[in-house]
Write a protein that binds this DNA or RNA. Structure first.
Lengths: 145, 145
DNA sequence: GACGCGTATATGTATAAGACATATAGCTGA
DNA sequence: TCAGCTATATGTCTTATACATATACGCGTC
């Protein structure tokens, strides 16, 4: 693991999200504003990795710090997301040998990963707008004053 | 159906979300920013009902209109949410007799439902803030320029 | 008058994210 | 030794949404 399966996958759908996540129904249909397609831990993870490579455990804390505690990733889910991202060539990892303490795996973002992060930004902003609109609707329906 | 099972349930946990939805882990822990606990269709539905009573089918279109197409509820899910809201006393419904066309069920919001909507507003604003923070983090990690 | 279409309500099922529990293994200090 | 922290990982549950489909009514049309 950690080998550049990156290159093999990179040219599949060059300027797209390549896989499920982040992009929605494929045909551009977007329903809802929150749950469903596209998580929030994943972009946070990519953002943390774009800042600096790290281990899963540290990344969790980095995310919590970067987001001022707004995103507190579940430890179990974090490693699953990292493995999935690696399968898709968005991150690479290598075991760190000859260290004290438990075995650690160092994750780094790939150029594909950076592209995915940029893509995420667009989607997050879209969602932010949707959530804005919904909040406005709820506010005016809730307190007409 | 449509009877005020409202009153029976109302005094359970007066100033709370009373049930699962909307409020998070119960102990105040909130993780993540989007998916998981609390949908987005439900507050939209309550907001639509707070504006005016209506049938499920119409409410779907009202929501789409109110949110400028940002929330397009799934028809199947909509009726499930309405039934769940009714079970919990947040809405009431009655079949409309003697009309042409297919049978219609008129839904109205209860005072508990209005309270829930007000509660939703708080949570949506919290989430909006969380999403704001996350988006900012992703933006600065994505394009440091 | 059979058929398609829009209205209206409803169920079944698949996918995905997240929450929580738990397993493992190594190190550190009491 | 034993508790507790670091670190990675799997199992499982709940929930939200997406999509398919079933039903029934009324209306227009061919």
């Amino acid at each position: 693991m950690g080998e550049p399966q990156d290159t093999a996958r990179a040219q599949k759908q060059p300027d797209d999200c390549r896989r499920r996540r982040c992009c929605e129904s494929g045909d551009g249909t977007r329903r809802g504003v929150g749950a469903g397609k596209g998580s929030f831990v994943e972009p946070a993870l990519l953002a943390a990795l774009a800042t600096s490579a790290g281990h899963g455990y540290d990344l969790a804390r980095a995310i919590e710090e970067m987001t001022q505690g707004e995103v507190v990733p579940d430890a179990g889910g974090l490693y699953r997301i990292l493995r999935r991202l690696e399968e898709d060539g968005f991150v690479i990892s290598e075991w760190q040998e000859g260290e004290s303490g438990p075995q650690r795996r160092l994750y780094s973002i790939t150029s594909d990963g950076r592209a995915l992060l940029a893509h995420w930004l667009v989607h997050l902003e879209e969602r932010r707008h949707a959530l804005d609109v919904l909040t406005g609707v709820v506010r005016s329906a809730s307190g007409p004053a």
